[in-house]
């Protein structure tokens, strides 16, 4: 039996403890230890983005990051985005703009889109090209990306009009 390491971190705002093998990936931990299956193992090599999560306000591929490295950090997964009162703005935009077909890549895509918009907050509004560049690490085989960019562009527009963080 290989060793396990105790880690303590914030998971979707909740102080969390886990015991993980040191070579376990963050994605495996989320899926196997916490039943958070929104993030997907679709390539395991950082080439598709389906496992994207936020850690300390940066997105990463959870399939590449070691779970032990979550220790002391703050993580948000797709499951932490919606509130009791409903979908987050970015999630709702993806629904309303028809970005979601099979949806398998969408938890990762939405996390990356949210990050993209938040990173850019207060700066010159993202263009469609900027949005597409920001999503380059997320592969979708259904949508052809147009409706994904539509959704993110709508959030950007809304944010610009209200002058508030909408995502």
């Amino acid at each position: 039996m290989s060793m396990e390491v105790e880690i303590n971190f914030s998971l979707n705002g909740i102080a969390t403890q886990a015991h993980v093998p040191p070579t376990m990936t963050t994605l495996a931990m989320l899926r196997e230890k916490f039943d958070l299956t929104g993030g997907k193992l679709a390539c395991g090599e950082g080439e598709c983005g389906a496992c994207t999560v936020l850690i300390d306000d940066r997105t990463i591929n959870a399939c590449l990051m070691f779970a032990v490295d979550c220790d002391g950090r703050e993580m948000q997964t797709i499951e932490g985005l919606a509130s009791a009162s409903g979908l987050a703005v970015m999630q709702q935009a993806f629904v309303d703009h028809g970005a979601i077909q099979c949806g398998y890549c969408m938890p990762g895509m939405i996390m990356q889109a949210k990050y993209l918009v938040e990173q850019n907050s207060g700066q010159q509004a993202l263009t469609r090209d900027d949005i597409a560049r920001g999503l380059e690490g997320n592969v979708c085989r259904c949508s052809g990306y147009t409706k994904v960019v539509d959704a993110v562009a709508a959030v950007v527009l809304e944010e610009n009009q209200t002058g508030e963080r909408a995502s």
Binding site: N61, L64, G134, E136, G137
Partner: peptide, 9 residues
């Protein structure tokens, strides 16, 4: 370099 997620890590 790669993608946003990989650049972040």
């Amino acid at each position: 370099f790669a993608s946003s997620q990989i650049r972040n890590a």
